[in-house]
Write a protein that binds this DNA or RNA. Sequence first.
DNA 1: TTGCTAAATGTAATACTATAACATATCAAG
DNA 2: CTTGATATGTTATAGTATTACATTTAGCAA
Lengths: 160, 160
Amino acid sequence: MTAFGFQPHDHTDCIRTTLAQADAYCAEHKLKLTPIRRRALEILLAEHRALGAYDLLAVLAKDGLGTAPPVAYRALDFLTSAGFAHKIEGLNAYIACAHFGADHSPAFLICTSCKSVAEAETTATQGRLGEAARAAGFAISRTVVEALGLCPQCQEAPCA
Amino acid sequence: MTAFGFQPHDHTDCIRTTLAQADAYCAEHKLKLTPIRRRALEILLAEHRALGAYDLLAVLAKDGLGTAPPVAYRALDFLTSAGFAHKIEGLNAYIACAHFGADHSPAFLICTSCKSVAEAETTATQGRLGEAARAAGFAISRTVVEALGLCPQCQEAPCA
DNA sequence: TTGCTAAATGTAATACTATAACATATCAAG
DNA sequence: CTTGATATGTTATAGTATTACATTTAGCAA
């Protein structure tokens, strides 16, 4: 359950710091980090793994913040648009961004056993995808770069 | 509708050639390219763009080859397992493989306007994902590498 | 303050994507 | 020919996401 680049770390601190950064970012960019949105981000940060929209919704519902699917999807739309979270297409799930702030094109290492996710930093025009796009005259607006496999822990203990 | 690396080409020939290759590959590997599976591949080849499972099913149904969802998903499972087709995660859609045969880790350029898809060839351990995986001790089993954006044609005619 | 406008939220219904479960049929190997 | 594995037929359901519209809230201007 605890994974960041597959290493344990201090969750409480990372949640608090990132929420503060999000508050500051929204203030500066005239975005509204409403209670639902802020709580959704907090939930994703606390889990620190990919969470389905309905999983998120279940937690929001326990807090009395909404019960219908659009509540979760709207919060996720906001968070992903603002760059506070990303969608993992290979899992139809969402995760808090590990590299707060700037516009970026994340790459993910996703453990299919324990569901932990590591986020690597890239730019959209790097790597083989960027090469191929330039060669083809293709204009990239978004990239999906994900590797599914086993994290170091789960390679050692496959039956966990 | 006609796109291969976003260039027009001879569909009829490419369908025939690839089906023949698939027949040969299945004979050699003791796989059964049954009528449903063969027709599904033919449909994907003919469209030459990402097709939803239910879109495929609709065509199969017109041919009297089945009406229930498992018909389409089973055919797609077979085709993707055999390497004859790939799933585009960013679109929840499927496309015939443009590089027949060998085991490979495809990278896609996907036009969000006309839905055409170009497939680039890579290996799972190449590029930034491979670097990140090695650094983290992560064992890759499958990669998802996709760029969403506009193909050359749609950049010029955005209102098509 | 009042009223306007845009954004956010509440809610119900529905669409889209995918799988589970189980019965039946087909086919190759012994 | 029978057995076992694979493929297909079919119904139901699970999981993911959006549309549509009513209501509320927040910010701003008259």
